[in-house]
Write a protein that binds this DNA or RNA. Structure first.
Lengths: 344, 344
DNA sequence: ATGAAAGCGCTAACAT
DNA sequence: ATGTTAGCGCTTTCAT
């Protein structure tokens, strides 16, 4: 691989001039020098060593991306948007880490980022214990958090990008109410994260004057590809077991994966969706319209959110002093076929 | 961040001794020295700078992973397995790149890897033009290719990890034949990749003596999350339009995403699966059992394959001279509800 | 068994 | 406008 020195020799200039070209300080030289250097770079196919750069500057053009599991299509979609923006708009690459919701994995990933000279990370996590995140901040990491609102850490230096989960919950339950439902349930997995709490609060707010309940499924210890789907299935069985007159007629799923399992499970139990039970998902993943019946879901502007996260990382990297911000996006309802009037 | 120098001072030894500890050369020192150094490392929370290491050694503990789009759950599942093995077994991290099936994106990703000191990449690509891959090899990259068999590049230094696509195709069509089908179709997206070609050949081999056809849908220019699903939908419409007596009674989808679209499309067109038309998918993604009807699909040992890819990367990094190999995995049939006897 | 020192490829003062 | 040079934090030969 050609080095900066080779370029300098080839162009007949000093290495600092080449370095100046690389770092956009073209004003410091004549047009002619610039052209000679650029020609030499192209001729030799020179790409500066990021390792050497990082050693010098303490900084690599890489963003860490921490997801619970990239096998979950929701996180896959986010990762795709993040990588696209990071790469095309800023020439940053993305280092991926699955955390399986383990604090140790998250902490170790952040440690590795630091040792690689990576100074920023987008965290998609539901962990409530954030000691390791705070530690990262202290060590100079730029942290942008997805879907976790600025609660306890309002005073810290984390930027937050989220959907308004309260509104999302309210949209879901109001939609069911508008169809005449009188007994609603919110289906979720065990372990209350901030976003789930907000969804439930919104759900209840939208369902005022009507019977509501929260049903919770236990998650297996392994974080598999379809863990949440299995939770939905289990919850469906639980619902089906109850009498026709006591079970909910409308169910809001904490997310689409769980909703998909719920719908599959309900059908397995001989209940029809939406004739017997209506289901509203949350996330509006690309899969929502593909299952049968196509699932009504509360979605969010994913591409905008991903883009905001990346831009925020880049901005704060450039100026660590900018005040912390919270970016709250509006959810919207994608109506499909999984909701109808309740059975008589 | 603590540097090696700080550790040396803290432990009262020289830098080289610390370095020897870091690089597993414990035999060179007394037990007592080793312990002092280890204690100092722990005390200071020292993590060696990978940038400095890379600058010196020309090598980073990172594997590049090139996928068409991480939003495709199939690639998400592979990425999860790859990252898991790379991290837990070898302490390697994964740098992710979406290629959207563009040669430029692939080439630019590999360029970036090189400039980062990353010397290995797992390529999941269907591109037939592999000039950029060859170029990478020449520049010292270790390349492991997923699902692309060693055809033209048999002489090159690429390791291949694939399913036996011919067998997969044959399993699918034989399964339909066994159910009494007499008119089969293979549904695929435009653009013949090696793996698709093999699947089709196997499909035809398994369907000897019966009418077969290959139907092809055009893919949009954008590589969206659900491109292949849309192709499946379009193909479904095309099939439904044809007369009951001429259209195929059994369809094999080139992959599950297309199969999911096919099933959704068929139902939209008023055709029942499997009563009117049977569908067999390929990949056996975790979604296959979740749609309705649960889709029969030809699967593969994904975790084994991912693990093999990572191990191969690590092995070849350690010894570039090991002969190129092709790892061929056996497909298997996952029977579900999307296949039945053809209508009378 | 341990240490000294050169140098990996850059960046950015600081000369000139 | 251009060049010289001191490191950035490691690894690794080569001494001792």
């Amino acid at each position: 691989m050609a080095r900066i020195q080779d370029v300098a020799r080839d162009a007949g200039v000093s290495i600092s001039t080449v370095s100046n070209v690389l770092n956009g300080r073209a004003e410091r030289m004549t047009r002619e020098t610039l052209e000679r250097v650029e020609a030499a770079i192209a001729r030799l196919g020179f790409r500066p060593s990021q390792a050497a750069r990082a050693l010098k500057t303490g900084h690599m053009p890489i963003i860490g991306l921490l997801v619970p599991s990239i096998a979950n299509p929701m996180y896959g979609s986010i990762a795709r948007e993040v990588e696209l923006v990071a790469q095309e708009r800023h020439n940053y690459r993305v280092l991926l880490g699955n955390t399986y919701r383990s604090v140790e994995k998250e902490a170790s990933f952040i440690d590795d980022l630091l040792s690689h000279g990576v100074r920023s990370v987008i965290v998609i996590s539901s962990l409530t214990d954030e000691g390791h995140i705070e530690a990262a901040l202290k060590r100079g990491m730029v942290v942008v958090s997805y879907d976790r609102r600025a609660d306890a850490d309002a005073k810290s230096r984390i930027d937050h990008v989220s959907v308004d989960n309260f509104k999302a919950g309210r949209i879901a339950s109001s939609h069911l109410i508008a169809h005449g439902h009188k007994r609603l349930a919110f289906a979720t997995a065990a372990g209350l994260t901030m976003s789930r709490r907000a969804k439930i609060a919104g759900f209840q707010d939208g369902a005022a004057g009507v019977a509501t309940e929260v049903i919770e499924g236990r998650v297996g210890s392994e974080y598999g590809d379809s863990e949440l789907v299995e939770v939905g299935r289990a919850l469906a069985a639980q619902i089906a077991r109850r009498g026709r007159t006591t079970r909910p007629t409308g169910v809001v799923a904490v997310n689409d994966m769980l909703g998909i399992g719920l719908i599959a499970g309900l059908r397995e139990q001989g209940l029809r969706v939406p004739e017997d039970i209506s289901v509203v998902g949350m996330d509006d993943m690309f899969l929502a319209p593909l299952i049968s019946p196509a699932m009504t879901s509360v979605g969010m502007p994913l591409a905008d959110m991903a883009s905001t996260m990346v831009e925020r990382v880049i901005s704060r990297l450039a100026d660590p002093q900018i005040p912390t911000a919270e970016f709250l996006f509006e959810p919207h309802l994608a109506q499909r076929q999984s909701v109808a009037a309740p059975p008589l």
